[in-house]
Design a protein around this nucleic acid. Structure first.
Length: 473
RNA sequence: GGGUCGCUAGCUCAACUGGUAGAGCAUCGGACUCUUAAUCCGCAGGUUCGGGGUUCAAGUCCCCGGCGACCCA
């Protein structure tokens, strides 16, 4: 044990006494040339080095920021070794906090140790890493050299943490439900399939945790939430990754108007926590998340933006004609509700910036929502549109078991007719409903999109550490 | 799925109408006692994404394939 580094020169542990940010916070006010007599130890990655003969300067970056290192041949141990370090090497440094004559807060290096060697050259120290594909494939490099990238993931962590606290403060409990589902359900999407060998059972990766969370409400958990990774077998785009994160929550005794208030308050709270304000700019446009958000029915917005005055009693011929006018492919089994939704998605949704709650959807396209209390053929459901993106989907939950069975069977018929996104009948879920689901409001929020909005990033890959990519070879 | 653009040294990028593939940074060697993307001198670094074709000659033109970006459906 005479050599504590055991030959490699790399120690097994290291004890920094402070961080770059803490040094700056405590000693940033020193006058030029001032010395503190305070010796600190920091650790991080060497990002820049400026050799100056018998002097050398370096920039050390740790998780909190950067601080300059100041080494002298006269007083720094193994000065030649220090000037031989590679950019990107991890080092630990001990020395006195000073401000140089030229006014740069620095640590004057007494001793140092290499904590890791960067065998591969770091990206251009000025331009960094610009190829987005390489940034995603080599996130371990991107995080060091791209400040905005690091900041987005720190913000993501804060958003997740603040969301949990906010919900727990309101008596919600966090649960974990299965990722493997024998019957995919809770959303209209294609699932991934897998197989359990011991049970010789085909299973599906969940497309939503909804039906399990409502089983828990039946079980007496009156307020539950899950931050769930979900999986949808769809294409990739700036807004879609095959695996993404949904916050789902269920609140007994609430309806969709209660959920609207919950969403706008939660999002405004998160904006304040992370951005310090509810008045943001996204993609060059103003976005005011201040409470309350506008509420408008899907039909009202369809009239306002699409100029289409229609309803469920509009003749099918007329709805089909309007769809054809807007280049929307129509299938024979589409009813008026589906046709109206298609018209809305084509003519109106792209025009919405928000925040706005689009309320009241056709029953035909909402198999898990409760019938509207006043409007036959419609359900109590809303989507929140924020920064032109569909941020959330929520409804007054369907609690009537007979009605739920009928909706499932209608979905099953569509699946048989070839709709790969349609739902199947889930008998166990129906059995749960037979034990009684109280009036309940439910919500799903796309957390990746929320993080995008609050960090000002433009693609979902900027907020997912390791997005799904084609293999390199 | 369709269209457009891109892929050149470890990184960031050049190379006019086809004519010996270059620079900056990083790396390596050297100089330099207050730098801030330090500066200066020097060495080295390439299957130009892959395959085929046209041509005396292809990074460049044509075809097929791979990967990506943007736009559209």
């Amino acid at each position: 044990m005479s050599d504590p580094t055991s030959g490699s020169g790399i120690p097994y542990r290291f004890d920094p006494t402070t961080t770059a940010a803490a040094v700056e916070a405590e000693y940033g006010g020193l006058t030029d040339g001032e010395e503190t007599g305070v010796v600190v130890t920091v650790a991080g990655r060497l990002m820049l080095r400026r050799d100056q003969g018998k002097l050398a300067f370096g920039d050390l970056q740790d998780a909190t920021g950067r601080v300059q290192l100041f080494a002298l041949q006269r007083s720094t141990a193994d000065f030649e070794g220090f000037t031989g370090l590679h950019l990107g090497d991890w080092i630990g440094v001990t020395g006195e906090v000073i401000k140089t004559r030229r006014g740069e807060l620095s640590i004057r290096v007494d001793s140092w140790v290499r904590l890791a060697e960067a065998r591969r050259g770091f990206p251009d120290k000025w331009h960094g890493m610009t190829d987005v594909d390489t940034r995603f494939r080599q996130r371990y490099v991107d995080l060091w050299v791209t400040e905005e990238s690091r900041a987005a993931f720190v913000a993501r962590s804060q958003i997740m943490s603040a969301t949990r606290r906010w919900l727990e403060d309101r008596a919600f409990i966090e649960v974990e439900t299965p990722v493997f589902h024998p019957i995919p359900g809770g959303a209209l999407a294609r699932p991934f399939t897998t197989h359990h060998n011991a049970l010789d059972l085909d299973l599906y990766l969940r497309i939503a945790p909804e039906l399990y969370l409502k089983r828990l409400t039946v079980g007496g958990f009156e307020r539950v939430f899950e931050i769930a990774r979900v999986f949808r077998n769809e294409g990739l785009s700036t807004r879609h990754n095959p695996e993404f994160t949904m916050l789902e929550l269920y609140q007994a005794y609430a309806d969709y108007t209660d959920i609207m208030e919950l969403v706008e308050q939660l999002v405004a709270h998160l904006a304040t926590e992370v951005c310090g304000t509810t008045k943001l700019t996204y993609d060059g446009r103003e976005l005011d998340l201040s409470v309350p958000w506008r509420r408008a029915t899907l039909l009202e917005l369809l009239a306002e933006h699409g100029g289409l005055i229609v309803d469920l009693d509009t003749s099918r011929d007329e709805l089909v004609r309007l769809c054809e006018e807007h280049d929307i492919p129509v299938k024979d089994h589409y009813g008026p509700g589906k046709l109206i939704l298609e018209l809305y998605e084509k003519t109106t949704e792209p025009e919405l910036w928000g925040p706005v709650f689009v309320t009241d959807y056709p029953k035909e396209v909402s198999p898990l929502s409760r019938d509207h209390r006043d409007q036959p053929g419609w359900v109590e459901r809303f989507e929140g549109i924020v920064a032109g993106r569909e941020l959330c989907n929520a409804f007054t939950e369907l609690v009537d078991v007979d009605e739920q069975r009928a909706r499932f069977e209608a979905q099953e018929a569509e699946k048989v007719a070839g709709d790969v996104e349609a739902m199947a009948v889930d008998e166990d879920y129906l059995r749960a409903l037979e034990y009684g689901l109280p009036p309940t409001g439910g919500l799903g929020i796309g957390m990746d999109r929320l993080v995008m909005i609050l960090t000002g990033t433009k693609t979902i890959r900027d907020v997912i550490l390791f997005p799904t990519l084609r293999p390199e070879q």
